[in-house]
């Protein structure tokens, strides 16, 4: 029974974190119909920022997440302005491949600058803290990351649904030309959305650096899982992304323990295929 509870807890926490990583991607996809292939590398960049800030200035991730979020907002917005903007509309594949090129560039840039050594942030406030209830071991850094992810997801959702800028974003997503006719500066909206997407993954990365090793390839698998989460949830839907992420976290956790750890990702991808065949536009897609 304790095994079951542990597996459940791990699945929920991982799921929440996947949710924050994927939320930004979902927003970008929904508004701009762009799959950002460099999403995993943005995560890696965020983790590096958190690591260096922690090592050089001594800021704890519990505080430095603001910095990593801001940095990634900028990085993402700049990527949009410099790269993606010139690719949109020209062909469906152009932004995807351009961001693929960006991902290769970022990964190797970090390899070259920071060496491939694995970096672990130690001495953080929550490090080593574990809450034990009912036989479950809940590590504090992951718990903080997942709770924070949920909060940020709600904030993002609220922003999109309830604020004027959020409505502008929704309008742009539904019909770009109509939005422009209504006086919305869609160019600014696109920049904002890309930046927000980056900020989400930046915040996620900021928390993850407190318990995961940082190295150039760290983002690869997270990237793939994020794509599947977004597609599973239905593009553009933040609640969809969260549900899909939790579902994937749970499937990964249960398949990993009750079947075999080595196929836990097979189960995740297989889940996607199964669901998408039943609902071709994802759980909440429209």
């Amino acid at each position: 029974m304790t095994d079951f509870a542990q597996v459940l807890a791990d699945g929920l926490m991982n799921g929440a974190i996947y949710g924050l990583v994927a939320a930004g991607l979902s927003l970008i996809w929904g508004v701009m119909d762009v799959i950002n292939f460099a999403h995993g590398e943005f995560l890696m960049a965020a983790m590096y920022v958190c690591y260096w800030v922690g090592v050089l200035i001594g800021l704890d991730p519990l505080i430095s997440w603001v910095l990593t979020g801001a940095f990634l907002f900028l990085l993402s917005a700049v990527s949009y302005k410099v790269v993606v903007r010139r690719c949109i509309g020209k062909s469906a594949m152009a932004p995807l491949l351009a961001t693929f090129g960006l991902s290769i560039f970022l990964k190797n840039f970090c390899l070259n600058m920071f060496t491939p050594n694995f970096r672990l942030l130690s001495g953080t406030f929550l490090e080593g803290m574990v809450f034990n209830f009912f036989g479950m071991a809940i590590p504090a850094p992951q718990l903080a990351a997942s709770l924070f992810s949920l909060v940020m997801l709600y904030v993002l959702y609220y922003f999109v649904k309830r604020t004027r800028t959020g409505w502008a974003i929704q309008a742009t997503a539904m019909d770009k030309e109509a939005a422009e006719l209504m006086g919305i500066d869609t160019e600014r909206i696109f920049t904002l959305v890309f930046g927000l997407g980056g900020a989400c993954v930046g915040i996620a990365g900021g928390f993850m650096a407190s318990y995961l090793a940082v190295f150039p390839e760290v983002g690869t698998l997270f990237s793939l899982i994020a794509f599947v989460v977004v597609a599973l949830g239905g593009f553009g839907s933040i609640p969809g992304a969260l549900c899909a992420a939790i579902l994937i976290g749970l499937v990964e956790s249960f398949a990993g323990f009750y079947i075999a750890p080595v196929i836990k990702y097979v189960a995740v991808f297989a889940l996607y295929i199964v669901v998408i065949l039943i609902r071709p536009k994802g759980l909440f897609g429209w």
């Binding site: 095994d3 542990q6 597996v7 791990d10 991982n14 390839e217 760290v218 690869t220 698998l221 997270f222 899982i225 990964e252 956790s253 398949a255 990993g256 323990f257 075999a260 750890p261 080595v262 836990k264 990702y265």
Partner: peptide, 19 residues
């Protein structure tokens, strides 16, 4: 317990060993 290189977490693997 084989595991995937570059995994996002090792929860299942360690739990399997623990059990």
């Amino acid at each position: 317990v084989p595991f995937t290189v570059g995994a996002t977490n090792m929860n299942s693997e360690i739990q399997k060993l623990k059990s």
